[in-house]
Amino acid sequence: MHKHQKRPWTFYVLATLFTLFVIFLYGPMISIFILSFQGPTGGLVFPLTDPGFHWFGALFGQARTGDVGGAFGRTLPLALAVMVATVVISVAAGLAFRRRFFGSSVLFYTALASLIMPGLVLSIGILVAFQFLGLPTRWYSSAFGAHLSWTLPFGLLIMFAVLSRLDPAYEEAAYDLGATRWQTLTQVVVPIVLPGIIAVSLFGFTLSYDEFPRSWLTTGPQNTLPIEIYTMTTTVTSPALYALGTVTTIISFLAIGLALGSIGYIQHRRRNKKSF
C-alpha cells in the first residue's frame, strides 16, 4: 500500500456520519450533566448561571421534587434482588441445558418469547392477572416478576454461551480427583465461569435498575425510580431533574465499571499472576 495514498471520499462521508452519531449519543447526556450544576436562580436551559451543587441538595431535601430518596430505596434492592435471582436461575438452567432433555428446546424458546413481547403489554397482563387473583401489585412482588421476565432471557443466553464453551473435561477431572458434585460446582465450575456470571449480574442489575415499561403498571402504589422520574417530568420544572439524571447515570456507570473491572482482573490474574 502506498503510504501517502489519498483517502477515498467515502472516508469523509463515514467520518461525518460517525461524528453525528457520537454527538447524538453523548450530546444530550453531556448537556444534562452540565445543566445539573445550574445555580439556584438558573433555568432548565443554557446559559449556566452561578454553577454549584444546589439541585443535588434539593434532590434529597423535602422540596416538591417527589420521593426520590424513597424511590431509590426501592429500586436499588429490587435491582439487586433481580440480579441475584437472574444469576441463580440462569446458572442452574445453563447447567441443566448442557444435557439435552425432553422438551428442552420448547422450554428454551418459551423463555426467549418474553424478549419479543412488548414490555407495556406484559405490564398490563401482569396487572390484570394480579387483579384477577385478588393480589395487590407491589414493587417487590409483581414488579419483581415483571423484571425477571426481561432479565432472564439475557441471562440464559449468556450462560448458555459460556457453559457451552466449558470443557466437560474440567468436571470429569474434578470427579476423578475425588470432588463431590457440590465441590465440583463451587470449586471448579463457578470459578471458571465467573466472568460470565459477572456479565449476567451486570445485565440483571442494569436492566432492572432502569426498567420503565414493565414497571409501569406493576409497581403498585410506591414508585420505582424510572417511574418517579417520569412522573417528575410532568410536575417538576427545575434543574433538580437534571441532577437526578446525573446521579442515576453515575450509579449505572459505577455498576458497569465494577463488573468490567472485576472481569478484567480475573482474566489478568489467570494470565499473569506473578511468580516468586
Binding site: Y170, Y175, D176, L177, G178, I192, R270
Partner: peptide, 21 residues
C-alpha cells in the same frame, strides 16, 4: 468412584483448572 478404584486419569486437554495456581 475413581478414588475408590485407586485410579487417576490424565486428560487429553490436561484439564488443568485455569483459576488455580
Amino acid at each position: 468412584t475413581p478414588v475408590q478404584r485407586g485410579t487417576a486419569m490424565m486428560f487429553q486437554s490436561y484439564a488443568l483448572f485455569p483459576h488455580l495456581t
